[in-house]
Amino acid sequence: LDITFHVDGKNIHVHGASEEVVRIIEELIKNNARAEEIKETLERLLR
């Protein structure tokens, strides 16, 4: 699975993920999660 995301100002662009995963990533970023935390969360979800 190949998910890429980047933050452009306040806009979060996520590619290669389901809508549910996109929402989770957006929440994590809004809550100022570190990249490592986001990665760990995604790995748990995608197991």
Rank of each mutant, 00 (worst) to 15 (best):
residue 4 T to M: 09
residue 39 K to D: 06
residue 17 A to P: 03
residue 20 E to Q: 10
residue 21 V to N: 03
residue 6 H to S: 10
residue 22 V to G: 03
residue 34 R to N: 11
residue 20 E to N: 07
residue 36 E to V: 08
residue 3 I to A: 05
residue 42 L to W: 03
residue 18 S to I: 04
residue 28 L to P: 00
residue 7 V to N: 02
residue 11 N to S: 12
residue 9 G to C: 03
residue 39 K to C: 05
residue 4 T to C: 06
residue 2 D to H: 14
residue 19 E to S: 11
residue 22 V to D: 00
residue 40 E to D: 11
residue 31 N to H: 11
residue 33 A to L: 06
residue 20 E to M: 11
residue 3 I to E: 02
residue 17 A to E: 01
residue 19 E to P: 13
residue 18 S to N: 08
residue 38 I to T: 02
residue 11 N to G: 05
residue 40 E to H: 12
residue 3 I to R: 07
residue 24 I to D: 02
residue 38 I to L: 07
residue 22 V to E: 02
residue 3 I to N: 02
residue 21 V to Y: 05
residue 7 V to W: 05
residue 24 I to F: 09
residue 20 E to A: 08
residue 5 F to D: 02
residue 25 I to K: 00
residue 20 E to W: 15
residue 1 L to C: 06
residue 21 V to W: 12
residue 47 R to P: 11
residue 12 I to M: 06
residue 16 G to L: 07
residue 23 R to C: 03
residue 14 V to N: 00
residue 15 H to N: 06
residue 5 F to S: 03
residue 19 E to L: 13
residue 46 L to W: 11
residue 6 H to R: 09
residue 33 A to H: 08
residue 26 E to A: 09
residue 33 A to E: 04
residue 32 N to E: 07
residue 28 L to T: 01
residue 24 I to K: 09
residue 31 N to V: 07
residue 8 D to L: 04
residue 45 L to C: 01
residue 19 E to M: 14
residue 5 F to E: 02
residue 46 L to V: 05
residue 47 R to L: 14
residue 46 L to F: 13
residue 7 V to G: 02
residue 17 A to D: 01
residue 27 E to V: 09
residue 45 L to T: 02
residue 31 N to C: 07
residue 34 R to K: 12
residue 23 R to Y: 11
residue 8 D to E: 09
residue 32 N to C: 04
residue 42 L to E: 00
residue 26 E to K: 14
residue 43 E to H: 15
residue 18 S to H: 05
residue 29 I to W: 04
residue 4 T to I: 14
residue 33 A to S: 08
residue 26 E to Y: 15
residue 14 V to I: 09
residue 6 H to Y: 13
residue 39 K to N: 10
residue 16 G to I: 04
residue 33 A to C: 06
residue 14 V to W: 08
residue 16 G to K: 06
residue 1 L to D: 06
residue 37 E to P: 02
residue 14 V to C: 02
residue 23 R to H: 08
residue 33 A to D: 03
residue 11 N to V: 14
residue 1 L to M: 13
residue 41 T to E: 10
residue 15 H to M: 10
residue 13 H to Y: 12
residue 38 I to N: 01
residue 23 R to E: 06
residue 47 R to D: 10
residue 5 F to N: 02
residue 24 I to C: 02
residue 18 S to G: 06
residue 4 T to L: 05
residue 5 F to A: 03
residue 32 N to M: 10
residue 42 L to F: 03
residue 32 N to Q: 11
residue 42 L to R: 00
residue 17 A to H: 01
residue 34 R to P: 11
residue 21 V to L: 14
residue 6 H to N: 13
residue 13 H to Q: 07
residue 28 L to E: 01
residue 30 K to V: 08
residue 30 K to G: 07
residue 47 R to Q: 13
residue 38 I to S: 00
residue 27 E to Y: 15
residue 15 H to Y: 14
residue 25 I to F: 04
residue 13 H to C: 04
residue 34 R to A: 11
residue 4 T to P: 01
residue 4 T to R: 07
residue 8 D to R: 04
residue 32 N to V: 05
residue 2 D to M: 12
residue 1 L to V: 14
residue 38 I to Y: 03
residue 32 N to I: 04
residue 19 E to I: 13
residue 15 H to I: 11
residue 31 N to Q: 11
residue 30 K to L: 12
residue 17 A to N: 01
residue 29 I to Q: 02
residue 18 S to F: 04
residue 4 T to N: 10
residue 39 K to H: 12
residue 25 I to A: 01
residue 16 G to D: 08
residue 42 L to H: 00
residue 8 D to G: 08
residue 41 T to S: 08
residue 27 E to C: 06
residue 22 V to M: 06
residue 17 A to C: 04
residue 3 I to W: 15
residue 47 R to T: 13
residue 34 R to G: 12
residue 27 E to P: 00
residue 15 H to R: 09
residue 26 E to F: 15
residue 2 D to R: 10
residue 1 L to I: 14
residue 30 K to E: 06
residue 10 K to P: 02
residue 21 V to A: 07
residue 38 I to C: 01
residue 32 N to F: 14
residue 20 E to C: 04
residue 37 E to V: 12
residue 7 V to H: 05
residue 40 E to R: 14
residue 2 D to N: 11
residue 6 H to C: 10
residue 13 H to D: 04
residue 17 A to T: 04
residue 7 V to Y: 07
residue 47 R to G: 14
residue 17 A to Y: 02
residue 6 H to P: 09
residue 47 R to V: 12
residue 16 G to A: 06
residue 37 E to W: 11
residue 17 A to Q: 01
residue 1 L to N: 09
residue 33 A to T: 09
residue 40 E to P: 02
residue 24 I to W: 06
residue 17 A to R: 01
residue 5 F to L: 10
residue 33 A to I: 08
residue 28 L to K: 05
residue 44 R to C: 04
residue 32 N to L: 08
residue 14 V to S: 02
residue 4 T to K: 04
residue 37 E to M: 12
residue 3 I to D: 02
residue 43 E to R: 15
residue 37 E to A: 10
residue 43 E to F: 15
residue 10 K to A: 13
residue 5 F to W: 09
residue 11 N to H: 13
residue 28 L to Q: 04
residue 15 H to L: 09
residue 15 H to G: 04
residue 8 D to A: 06
residue 12 I to T: 01
residue 3 I to L: 11
residue 46 L to T: 05
residue 24 I to N: 04
residue 18 S to W: 04
residue 46 L to P: 01
residue 33 A to F: 09
residue 18 S to V: 04
residue 8 D to W: 05
residue 26 E to P: 00
residue 13 H to F: 12
residue 44 R to D: 04
residue 36 E to F: 13
residue 9 G to A: 02
residue 2 D to V: 12
residue 46 L to C: 04
residue 30 K to I: 07
residue 22 V to P: 00
residue 13 H to K: 05
residue 9 G to L: 02
residue 27 E to T: 11
residue 14 V to D: 00
residue 6 H to E: 13
residue 35 A to S: 10
residue 25 I to C: 02
residue 17 A to S: 03
residue 6 H to I: 14
residue 35 A to E: 07
residue 39 K to R: 14
residue 44 R to G: 04
residue 23 R to P: 01
residue 39 K to G: 08
residue 41 T to R: 08
residue 5 F to V: 10
residue 20 E to L: 10
residue 8 D to V: 02
residue 24 I to T: 09
residue 35 A to H: 11
residue 28 L to V: 01
residue 3 I to V: 12
residue 35 A to P: 09
residue 11 N to P: 13
residue 29 I to C: 03
residue 37 E to C: 06
residue 21 V to G: 01
residue 42 L to Y: 03
residue 20 E to S: 09
residue 43 E to D: 10
residue 42 L to A: 04
residue 39 K to V: 15
residue 41 T to A: 13
residue 1 L to G: 07
residue 15 H to F: 14
residue 5 F to I: 10
residue 14 V to L: 07
residue 43 E to K: 14
residue 4 T to H: 10
residue 46 L to H: 04
residue 37 E to R: 09
residue 27 E to I: 11
residue 13 H to V: 11
residue 37 E to I: 13
residue 33 A to P: 04
residue 27 E to H: 10
residue 29 I to D: 00
residue 31 N to L: 13
residue 2 D to S: 12
residue 3 I to S: 02
residue 42 L to P: 00
residue 7 V to C: 06
residue 44 R to Y: 14
residue 37 E to D: 11
residue 11 N to T: 14
residue 26 E to H: 13
residue 12 I to A: 00
residue 46 L to A: 04
residue 26 E to R: 14
residue 3 I to M: 10
residue 32 N to H: 12
residue 24 I to L: 09
residue 5 F to C: 03
residue 4 T to S: 11
residue 41 T to G: 03
residue 27 E to N: 13
residue 11 N to C: 08
residue 44 R to N: 06
residue 34 R to Q: 08
